[in-house]
Simulated scan of single mutants.
Amino acid sequence: MVGTQALVTRVTAEDHLGDPHVGLVVPPANPAAEPEMTRLLGSAYALHTTRFSVSRQPLRTRLESYNTELADRIASFGDLGLAALLVACSGSRYLLGARQDHESCAALSAHFGLPVATATLATHQVLRRLETRALVLVSPYEGWLTEQCRAFWDAAGWHVRVLAVRAGDQYAPYKVGTAELVEQVGRARLPHDAVLLFTGTGMSTLAALPALGHGNDRVLLTSNLCGAWWLIHQVGVVPDEGLAWALRRLAAQGLAP
């Protein structure tokens, strides 16, 4: 197990690589991915973002289009010299299934000559380090997409319990507030040692995690947290600003990048 102190002191940006450039591909109106990734990575990384094309089509059609145009979005970084690239979108990959998601990331990595992962692949890599196969999926998605998400993780080998969360009376990932998230998860009375996956890079989660982790041993994973974990693991530069609370907790639980 790598403790928190070992994680913090292993290597910093000033010690080794300077400020590595990492790429982020996000849906057009996603309000959470960049702020949370910036909070998690700190000033040790230079974060560059591109967005999928705006569309007024139904959600499923939009998600399918993100998979279709992903290679073009990665190519839009040109010769920037990225050390790694994260696709901060989960919903589009749930339509593919875990195997196709992994194969697609491998093909994109080979084509562009840099590590490429989706939020779902990054999450899968974190989950593989756990001893348990039981997973509480905290989903802000509408029913059909939550079912796609459940089937994705079920097929990947996890026993999934679904906890649906809402913004008011609607399923709207971009609108779920911190107080709403804490209240709804708290009301579910989950086991103190549960593994929780808050899915969706557009749902703001970091501010809620300290309250949800208080007084228990839960493993708290989010799409953005796992994405940051993967970027740190790939690049090898640990943020030198004490780490965000969520990363420190993972390190203390033996899940350091």
Rank of each mutant, 00 (worst) to 15 (best):
G3L: 10
G3W: 10
A6C: 07
L7A: 15
L7D: 04
T9I: 09
E14V: 13
E14A: 15
H16E: 11
H21M: 10
H21F: 02
G23P: 01
P27E: 11
P28Q: 14
P31C: 00
P35M: 10
L40C: 03
A44N: 08
H48W: 10
F52C: 01
S53K: 11
S55K: 06
L59D: 14
R62E: 11
Y66E: 02
R73P: 04
A75H: 09
F77P: 02
G78V: 04
L80C: 04
L85G: 00
R93W: 00
E103G: 02
E103P: 06
A106F: 04
L108V: 07
A110E: 12
A110Q: 12
H111S: 08
F112T: 07
G113Q: 00
P115R: 01
V116D: 01
V116H: 05
T120L: 11
Q125L: 10
L127S: 01
R128G: 08
R128C: 12
L135A: 03
L137D: 02
G143D: 14
W144Q: 13
E147G: 02
E147R: 12
R150W: 03
F152K: 01
W153F: 13
A156C: 00
R166G: 08
A167Y: 03
P173C: 02
V176S: 08
T178E: 12
A179L: 11
H192F: 11
D193R: 07
T199H: 04
D217Q: 14
L220S: 08
N224D: 07
I232N: 05
V235A: 04
A244S: 11
W245E: 14
R248S: 10
R249V: 11
G254H: 09
A256G: 15
P257E: 05
